[in-house]
Amino acid sequence: MRWWTFLLACSAVAAAVFFAACWLANDYYFFAGYTVLQFVVLATAWNILGGYCGYVNFGSAAFFAVGAYTTVFFHKALPLPIPALVLLAGIASGLIGLGTGYLTLRLRGAFFSIATLALAVVLQTLVVNWNYVGGSRGAYVVRPNEVALIGSYVQYLFLIMLALAVGALAVARAIERSRLGFGFATIRDDELAAEASGVPTLKLKLIATTLSGALMGMAGAPFPYYIGYLEPASAFGLPYAVNAIAMPMIGGTTSWVGPLIGALLLGTLQQVATVTISSAVNLLLVGLLLVGFVIVAPKGIVGLVQPYWGRKRKRAEPP
């Protein structure tokens, strides 16, 4: 399947999802669906660096928050439509990804991971001390009720996140089948051998951190409008960091399908669990699933299913 055929197929599925939600005529489904789709984007973005290159980012929440706070900043400084904000958020968090990568990617992988943990706290401290975007008190972002042509604002936000999810999946899948994806895999396998084979590992890792960071930021951009009131603790919340890791790990990290499955499964599970049980219990569940899967099923759900999938699909050749 060529990438645009894939994009078309994804869009068709997305349109079906959207109209199904419209048909249910209940805003709750849009609210819940938005969160699940947001996790699809986050998990897919995390996997571009984590799954393809083998570098663990613990700071997904930081990139997400950079996106969200870009929106808060422009909401006050220069009101722009959400698609423009998504783009700006992508640029801001992409640059942060590039910077973090540039500082730490020459070192052993563990140092990069530790640095991403640190990054989250540094950025959170900066935001807490930055009064323009609300400081520790948080900021209100008033959203309009209606959007022309689409209907309620929640539907509009849902549609944007749906588009982002389709975009993220298309990007991930395109990478997998390209020269870039092969280069990423050599980094995951053996960096020394990769360099000896002519792979510019530092450059590739920087591309991955930038892309991954940018996508996470884009996922965060509509969030202030969704939640209406953004405070540092919710934007930098641990659930984002944990889910961004747990979803690909549980789904499977070697292809775009894994994060998608993981996000749909865990995301939906959490939506249901938050309503029926407490949110702390459902986070505990995510933690237990994460630990359980990395020990028992290191290849995730995709790895568990693959043997029964019938013949193993042949990998596409790169251009």
Partner: peptide, 18 residues
């Protein structure tokens, strides 16, 4: 492979806290 080991400890941290 460091990836899964890191995720394992991250999960433990999270489980302890929750």
């Amino acid at each position: 492979e460091a990836l899964r080991g890191l995720a394992f400890f991250f999960g433990l941290l999270f489980i302890t806290e929750v």
